[in-house]
Amino acid sequence: SRGGRPVGVPEALILRIAEGRDRAAYAQLFSQYAPKLKAFMMGRGLTAIEAEDLAQDALLNVWRKASYFDPSKASATTWIYSIARNLHIDGVRKQKRAQTLPEDLWAPEPEQAPDTHLIGVQDAKTIGVLMQTLSPEQREVVRLSFFEDLSHGDIAQALSIPLGTVKSRLRLALLRLRAAFETRTESKSV
């Protein structure tokens, strides 16, 4: 029952957790994101059990680090994604090193005016739209890298193209997304 009320918006839920340790908000956020995280991590080759554990851990981190969340810097989905990504990497590395905290990456930029280059404000849906501006070949290598987490070599094999072509396609696609992102952000802030 959203009905235009901001109460179910994930950004608002995280703020309610940060400010009031709101368990109902957490339950709602968990139900929204855990099944997606589980599916996403299974797409990356984790078993259903591993993926479910990772989703649990990621949401637990959301609860604990909610006070670091800044909706002017990142959408809820982007922030939650970055937490899950870090957990996944640390799991893969199985290294006993201090976890890279997402708040490091989303910390304020001292060398920039506060309202320039705010990628995070743009939500994931904007990127979804920008992805459509890529060529089908570029979109494919981005999807295989981010969603299926294939190595460049595996992508080359899957698409039967040289490794160098995979890298140059990926490079072009990423530069293009970045340029499109910056243009959008600049035109918005004017």
Binding site: K36, L37, A39, F40, G43, A74, S75, T77, T78, I80, Y81, S82, A84, R85, L105, W106, I119, G120, Q122, D123, A124, K125, T126, I127, G128, M131, V142, R143, F146, F147, L174, L177, R178, F181
Partner: peptide, 14 residues
């Protein structure tokens, strides 16, 4: 940050 936003867009669609 852009990469996180790209990944998030895929998380959104899954």
């Amino acid at each position: 940050r852009l990469f996180d936003a790209i990944g998030a867009s895929m998380l959104d669609e899954v």
